[in-house]
């Protein structure tokens, strides 16, 4: 078990449990590196990585860029909000232009589900195929987020088998939720999704998860609550009346956590809408491992980049 089963990271769906464990073990080592005074290793020297972001991102892009630099890769960034099509150039043309400048790996965020799969299938036809890493494709997957979430739970609670994870919020539009479900199920955890009924996909239970529309019930059930951002920007039509009502009936505050009388781990992929899905006193409470997630994100992304580069 020293190599991944895939040369692209398109989604958690395509990974084996061995792949997941390999990423975690490699990330353990990189996390140790990140806590040394000199945080840089030469593993990816002479490897050029392009971070291609067709959708706004702060932390994911920064996290990837830091991971790349800690591995001594050469890094270029391209960002453009909105679809490339509307800009007059196709996604394929944009990426082929970047690849023509001899780039070895592409980290891409895009608003369309399947965009990295489309890219990977086209790139594979070329003579020196680059590795494609999905940094979020619309409402489909966000594999590195799921990896860092699972890594953070593992760090806090040990093996995930039998652990109860509740994912709370807008499940319908969340790539984080979908990748988390795939990842956690592969690792043997029990998963519940919770949110307003209009934001729970109709067929989600068929993925083997429990469904709740009561935040208190979900909190009582779980060992870990992964609270999602309400993605107002991704709502093309209305699914609930107002943020105010959402906060009142689905938001989590400190009092709710205290009333549980148990240890609970609180997570959030960021950025937090303070006062909507989480109040500040909950987000900043001792239950929260939100900043550990961010720290682990760099180590996990280093592991992914390192393992994929080794495929070449």
């Amino acid at each position: 078990m020293t190599a991944l089963s895939t040369r692209h990271l398109l989604g958690i769906k395509d990974l084996t449990e061995n792949d997941l464990q390999l990423v975690f073990q490699t990330a353990d080592e990189f996390k140790e590196v990140l806590n040394r005074p000199i945080k840089r290793v030469p593993s990816l020297r002479d490897v050029t990585i392009a971070n291609v972001f067709f959708e706004n991102s702060t932390r994911t892009r920064l996290s990837f860029e830091l991971a790349e630099k800690r591995l001594s890769a050469d890094v270029v960034n391209f960002s453009s909000s909105g679809s490339s099509v509307k800009k007059g150039e196709t996604l394929l043309d944009t990426v082929n232009n970047i690849l023509a400048m001899k780039v070895d790996m592409i980290v891409m965020r895009h608003a369309s589900p399947g965009a990295p799969h489309f890219l990977a299938s086209r790139i594979n036809a070329g003579p020196h195929p680059a590795n494609v890493i999905n940094a979020g494709d619309g409402t489909h997957e966000h594999p590195t987020q799921a990896l860092l979430d699972a890594f953070s739970i593992r760090e806090k609670l040990g093996d995930l088998v039998g652990k109860k994870i509740a994912i709370i919020g807008d499940i319908l539009h969340s790539r984080v939720a979908l990748s988390n479900i795939f990842c956690l199920k592969k690792l043997g955890a029990d998963v519940m999704v919770c949110g307003p009924s209009t934001l729970i996909p109709r067929y989600i239970a068929d993925l083997g998860v429990l469904v709740s529309h009561d935040v208190r019930e979900a909190l009582r059930w779980c060992d870990v609550a992964n609270v999602l951002r309400i993605q107002l920007e991704r709502l093309q039509v209305k699914y609930f009346p107002s943020l105010r009502e959402y906060a009142l009936y689905f938001g989590i505050n400190r009092q709710m956590l205290d009333e549980l009388n148990k240890e609970i781990v609180l997570m959030h992929p960021g950025p937090i809408n303070r006062g909507v899905e989480l109040t500040s006193d909950a987000a900043d409470s001792r239950h929260s491992i939100i900043l550990n997630q961010v720290e682990n994100g760099v180590a996990v992304r280093m592991a992914v980049l390192y393992l994929l580069a080794a495929q070449n």
Binding site: P113, G114, T139, E141, V237
Partner: peptide, 21 residues
């Protein structure tokens, strides 16, 4: 059917795509 891309079902759920019920 607004913004739907494919049949609404388990496959569209797994692919994260808006369904056409």
């Amino acid at each position: 059917a607004y913004f739907g891309q494919m049949h609404e079902g388990l496959v569209s759920t797994r692919l994260g795509m808006k369904g056409l019920p």
